[in-house]
Design a protein around this nucleic acid. Structure first.
Length: 472
RNA sequence: CGCGGGGAAGUGUAACGGUUGCACGGGAGGCUCAUAACCUCCAGGUAGGUGGUUCAAUUCCACCCCCCGCAACCA
């Protein structure tokens, strides 16, 4: 039994990981790809480590925003979400995301779950009159502070004071309990900054929140509140329950989410689960956002980075590479075409791609048989960071190993040695190949296709086609 | 005075109470197995500002300046 094998056996058991489910009123952008890539690296890693992994992703379709977007586009809401959900799924597939299930919140199985949770939490739900400033243009409520000169910021019209009766959730009952849960890491929030953010928010005091809206406001779109056809569930209440759709794996080991939705996952979600008598997720991993030239990605700014375009021109693994290595897992990071290309050329073309070529060329020429790579030692400085969501560090370590091999080849000059002492040269090349295999194996969760190509080349003892051609 | 995070070579970042390290980019040499790739060397930071603690501060403290998140309800 090899070292690696032993390591694997220590990691038995289930591992349930999720991404958030994006609402589908627009096309996916690079930020969605980031979350996919991160979650996928973890899913693949634990799968390789022998865990029974369940990786869930999907789409959030019951939002009023979808209804509005469809209305604007002049198509039915169902039509819009069907079409857009397909695009998100397509992105996940093109990025080689190894999800085990793709849940859409308009599916019957999800609707059933959402209703079940509602009923299970019924003791903490009550009906209350709600009064607010409602903009008919946006079809939503605004807070006084959100208005510009007392007008809706989008439509520049005066919101009406509207009163309606909604269901509320008794969030206030959970103040102390929730604080303890987060403080003690019973539900761990990574990184610590986000844990503090959640805690300071909770400490401000939790107020009950509305978990339903009038059905008529979206022409009936959304999930019906059990026993009250006039009401639809607040989209977050319904959306969060998507994580329960694979019940045999609950609780989740890791929820991956963006910083923008921390509150829903750190506050509403655990409390909903408590109310329903269910276990809490073990960890929330909160990533930052991608910026473009330091600015927020937004349709109005017209700076949205299209992940499909990048995949098409550079390949899925190159995109995964950028998102995992060049992007800080916890903070905002910039993505621009220029930076992408620079990183691609420096680390994929010149770095990994070239190393594979030079090593495999020598292997092909000097060695009569493929090198045995069945057992390779694990790289703790890759695996440990990965387990801590430090994708960039993990990859940095791998690239250091590559640098080492490049340096060794330069110093040992096997291409010269082979003329004088073939045996010694062969020995050196075998070592490089083995090291390359070791890197390739660790690369699997990050860049699965590339990893496979390298391992196949080694098994065939043949220099492969250029893995990452330089881009000018 | 709402809460929080951050200011370091052109860019992105690490560690750290005691020669600022790394990567990319730039420059010079070397090598030829390799994708003009690779290796070596060089340039470039008064570490946002001011003051304090200390034998010693980029690192600790205070204040100021500047950026950026979040500020609860229909993603």
């Amino acid at each position: 039994m090899t070292w690696r094998r032993k390591n694997m056996l220590q990691k038995k058991g289930k591992f349930y990981i999720t991404t958030t489910i994006p609402y589908v009123n627009a096309r996916p952008h690079a930020g969605h790809a980031l979350e996919y890539a991160q979650a996928d690296a973890l899913a693949r890693y634990y799968r390789l480590a022998g865990k029974d992994v369940f990786f869930l992703t999907g789409t959030d379709e019951n939002s009023l925003k979808n209804y509005q977007a469809a209305k604007e586009g002049g198509i039915s809401t169902k039509n819009l979400v069907d079409r857009n959900a397909e695009i998100f799924k397509d992105l996940a597939e093109k990025l080689n995301i190894s999800f085990d299930d793709f849940i859409r919140t308009t599916e019957a199985r999800h609707i059933e779950t959402a209703k079940k949770i509602w009923l299970a939490a019924k003791d903490k739900i009550y009906k209350k009159k709600y009064r607010g400033l409602y903009c008919v243009g946006c079809e939503m409520f605004y807070k006084e502070s959100e208005l510009v000169d007392g007008l809706c910021p989008d439509h520049k019209i005066k919101p009406e004071i509207v009163e309606e009766e909604n269901y509320f959730f008794k969030l206030s009952d959970y103040q102390c309990q929730l604080e303890k849960i987060i403080e003690s890491d019973e539900m761990e929030i990574v990184p610590a900054v986000r844990k503090n953010e959640a805690l300071s928010f909770i400490k401000l005091g939790l107020e009950d929140f509305s978990i339903s809206r009038l059905a008529e406001r979206g022409d009936g779109w959304g999930i019906e509140v059990p026993g009250d056809p006039g009401q639809r569930m607040y989209v977050w209440f319904d959306a969060l329950t998507n994580y329960l759709s694979a019940e045999k794996y609950w609780p989740a080991d890791v929820h991956c989410l963006g910083k923008g939705v921390l509150r829903f996952h750190a506050v509403y979600w655990p409390v909903m689960l408590l109310a329903a008598g269910l276990a809490l997720p073990k960890k929330l991993f909160v990533h930052g956002y991608l910026t473009v030239g330091g600015q927020k990605m937004s349709k109005s700014l017209g700076n949205v980075v299209d992940p499909f375009d990048l995949i098409e021109r550079y390949g899925a693994d190159a995109v995964r590479y950028y998102l995992l290595r060049e992007v800080s897992p916890f903070e905002d990071a910039d993505i621009t075409e220029e930076k992408f290309k620079e990183a691609y050329n420096a680390n994929l073309a010149n770095g990994l791609g070239n190393l594979v070529s030079r090593v495999m060329k020598m292997s092909e020429q000097y060695l009569d048989n493929p090198v045995d790579i069945s057992s390779t030692k694990p790289m703790d400085d890759v695996n440990k960071p990965l387990e801590n969501f430090e994708f960039n560090r993990a990859m940095f370590s791998m690239w250091s190993y590559m640098k080492d091999i490049d340096g060794m080849i330069q110093e040992e000059k096997p291409f010269e040695l082979v003329k004088r002492d073939k045996k010694s040269a062969q020995k050196r090349v075998m070592y490089y190949v083995k090291e390359l295999a070791r890197i390739a194996k660790h690369l699997r969760p990050f860049m699965p296709d590339t990893s496979e190509k390298i391992l196949e080349a080694i098994k065939a003892n043949k220099m492969p086609e250029s893995l990452f051609p330089r881009k000018e």
